[in-house]
Amino acid sequence: MFFKNKLRILKNPYIISALIILLIMLFLAIFAPFLTEYNPVSTDARNRLQPPSSEHFLGTDEFGRDVFTRMLYGIRASLQVGFSVVILTLLFGVFIGVLAGFYPKFDRIIMRVLDGMMAFPGIIIAISLAAIWGGGKLNIILALSFAYFPKMARIVRGSVFSIKDLEYVESARAVGAGDFYIIVKYILRNTSSPILVQATFNFALAILDEAALSFLGVGIMPPTPSLGGMINDARSFMTVAPWLMIFPGMMIVFSVLAFNLLGDGLRDFLDPHLRGNINN
């Protein structure tokens, strides 16, 4: 059964396409120091705004910095932010969602607070917190995590509601199983599918919003390379050096596309109703 499921998931075109893109990105991020001989923050005024060439694969920016090198380290920063945001969102969202869904006395209080938070777009919350706390990778991670976890909590809460009164949960409770055992053994195991799918979408959203915050000047602070910051710096040189904006922009598009494809593929694979429709 394990190998049958493994083969089925590898036949999903969304998942395959996403994995190819993500593996390439991961390779570029991990081996960035070995793929380029340039320093991402070192300037060279003599070679400023050079077009793509054999010496500078993707050209240079207004300070003579190698665009390919800065893009490699920008990918690394985006993946670090995305991974950290997903972990924090899972920790807080799952904990609060299970608490609200399993214990009705906490549900009214918790969900009213989360409803108030979800009344504002996540990017607005992130921008506000980043402006208050200041830029930097850690502050961006905290701001985006705070903006995203209410939706994760609501998804987990809805899944817990649909599971906690099922017969096998009632049977476990009847034989004396405690709440912690029921939550770990039955609730979390059966809510893992929507949690996993939402986590992939949060990863894509974190990459996109980190780029947006850096573009607005409240994200990762220069000269540390970030994809959004590179696009922001390139605005004044769009006509004379379009490569400064094109290549980082393409990388953001491919990154977000990969995680969205992965989320769609996992949703199709893990949802038995959708899987049945696909097989038919």
Rank of each mutant, 00 (worst) to 15 (best):
V175T: 13
A100R: 01
G101Y: 02
G122N: 04
V169D: 03
L90I: 08
L144N: 11
Y168I: 07
K164G: 03
T89V: 13
R76W: 05
Y168W: 12
L91K: 09
F180T: 09
G176V: 12
A147L: 02
F161H: 14
L90F: 15
A177R: 05
G176H: 07
D165K: 02
E170I: 04
S128F: 13
S162I: 00
M118L: 15
S171F: 07
P121W: 14
K105L: 04
G82R: 04
R70M: 10
F149D: 03
P121I: 14
G93L: 09
S162N: 12
L79M: 13
A100P: 13
L129W: 08
D66F: 13
K105M: 07
Y168E: 06
S159P: 10
F68K: 06
K164M: 12
I124K: 11
R112E: 10
V160E: 12
R154P: 00
L88A: 11
V94D: 01
I125P: 00
L144W: 06
K151S: 08
L91T: 14
V85K: 00
A177F: 15
T69G: 05
M71P: 03
R70A: 09
V156S: 06
L142N: 07
L88H: 05
L166N: 15
F146P: 02
Q80F: 10
L142V: 12
L142I: 13
A177V: 08
I110S: 15
F106P: 11
V94L: 13
I141P: 12
G122H: 08
L142D: 08
L142P: 09
K137P: 00
I155P: 06
I182Y: 05
A172G: 14
Y103S: 03
A143V: 14
S84V: 11
T69E: 05
G135N: 01
M117Q: 13
R112H: 09
L144Y: 14
D165A: 07
D66T: 03
A153N: 11
A126W: 10
I163L: 11
I125A: 15
K151V: 03
G74E: 02
E167D: 10
Y73M: 06
I123Q: 00
F161R: 15
G135M: 01
A126M: 02
I127P: 00
G158Y: 04
I183E: 02
V86I: 04
I163N: 05
A174M: 10
G136P: 07
V98C: 01
F146N: 10
Y148F: 14
G134F: 01
G134M: 01
L138S: 09
I182Q: 01
G93N: 11
G122Q: 10
V94M: 07
I75Q: 01
L88K: 04
A153H: 10
S145C: 02
M117V: 15
S128W: 11
M152K: 06
V81A: 07
S145K: 09
I87W: 00
V67H: 00
F149N: 06
F180Y: 08
F102H: 08
R157F: 03
G134C: 05
A126G: 01
F102K: 04
D165E: 14
W133D: 10
I110M: 15
